[in-house]
Amino acid sequence: MSHDHSLNPETMPQEPEKATLEGRNKFYGLWFFLGGETVLFASFFGTYIALRNSTAGGPASTDLFGLGLVFAMTMILLTSSLTSVYAMYHMKNNDFKKMQLWLAITAFLGLSFLALEIYEFTHYIIDYGFTFRSSAFGSAFYTLVGFHGGHVTFGIAWLMALMVRNAKRGLNLYNAPKFYTFSLYWHFIDVVWVFIFTVVYLMGRVG
């Protein structure tokens, strides 16, 4: 097998991300990793649910959360999931430029989400004095949502590295699995957020 895996419409396999053994390994490896991540977030959710009313006299979820901002964040992140699907669609059609474009949009949406999240945290800290150390609820809230934010940050860094690295070399069977696994990871982050939106914010409004 030669090292030159670059693709043209004739050599393009049906699923470039799984055409090589390395690709299949990455594909399964990432799925397994996400299985572990599920337990990680489940544990954080469990902790949060156990502590969400332990406010120790400090601000409670009903005082803090407004749905407008969080709804916008949800929409942004869901949309970014959709744009990464477009990117993968173009990958399968061997259209590298369009793939890069949709990935860039995905990264931009991810950054917007992060910006809003930072704004949200600052708002709680400055306007409500609600911090990581305020109460067990505070610790659990910032840890759960913060870990998700950290995952988003890592995902954006990963995506940028991939895009810059491969800007000049185009799509090939060596890097197609890398793009694909990123998109899987990104969907996962999105799903976790849907749970955060429900468990933290919606249930938090109810109190």
Binding site: L51, T55, A56, F132, R133
Partner: peptide, 23 residues
Amino acid sequence: LLMFDRMFGSAFFDVALGGNTII
């Protein structure tokens, strides 16, 4: 959680701030 409690002042296991050691 243990690291955050010991190093960064969070309150997961600090009963006075509503923490719960059974977690």
